[in-house]
Amino acid sequence: MTRYIAQRLLILPLLMVIYSFVIFLIIQAPPGDFLTAYVATLASSGSSISADQIAALRHQYGLDQPFLVQYFLWMQNLLHGDFGLSLEYQRPNADLISEQLGLTLALALFSFVLTWAIAVPAGIYSATHPRSLIDHVLTVINYVGVATPNFMLALILMWLAFAYFDINVSGLFSPEFVDAPWSFARVGDLLFHIWLPGLVLGIAGTARLSRIMRANLLDELNKPYVVTARAKGMREWRLVLRYPVRLAFNPLVSTIGWYLPALFSGSLIVATVMNLPNIGPLLLRALINQDMYLAGGILLIYSFLTIVGTLLSDVLLALLDPRIRVES
């Protein structure tokens, strides 16, 4: 087991190098560069910049270098822990990202926990009471949840909260706490505001997860080992939790790997709509303005999370299922 994890960790740097190359290739793919986008912005606001100045800037940022040279320079800096300078904000990318990363992670984890806390019990109830009224109600909610785009849901909920409860739910903080230093009051304010975006982000995942849980558990409930356990004289709910639920869990655990990064990238549109201090809008802006090193840095973090998430779900799966653990 330890060996298995060590092996996976050793492959991690290699994967990161491959991902970084692909990421660089993609963010360089659109025509033009940061400066063409910059000139266009300036032009639209009525000011202009001379061709000489542009050439000088292009040289200064190294944008006139060939693709591979630019890539190696970027990698060289990355290996020294330097994410480079944002061309647009003229600030270190590391600062820009780390300012947003904490709250992004908090939101993603909150929504993840919420998803599982709702989906698993709902799935278990549906599977143990198939075709009951509550099962039908949950099924309808699930289909609506999967089918509604989450930004749409965000808009509706924001409108409802504002129109009927007079609460402004955009952002993660009340106005007086946005720039305040951390304190218990600010944490409390965060916890008050995180519910709605957490729910919005998690709703589609919750619906999908509870459908998977229901289907898996229905399968497992028909297995002979359930009859054996009943024939032992176990209490029904204890039996269900101890045997079939445990086995129905395995396919769910293997989804954690892609679910974590999906929460980050999925938050992009919602975060923009709900004005959340989140890494999503930062990435969107960086991509639009071709602020390539900022976008590259964020995408690298996404890739890292994907790899770590996959590793995490594999390890969890091995802990949960001796058939995987013993054989590997």
Partner: peptide, 16 residues
Amino acid sequence: IALIPQEPMASFSPVH
């Protein structure tokens, strides 16, 4: 009253 089921493989939980 105890039961000896038909398929011992499937009648034990594989993860316990």
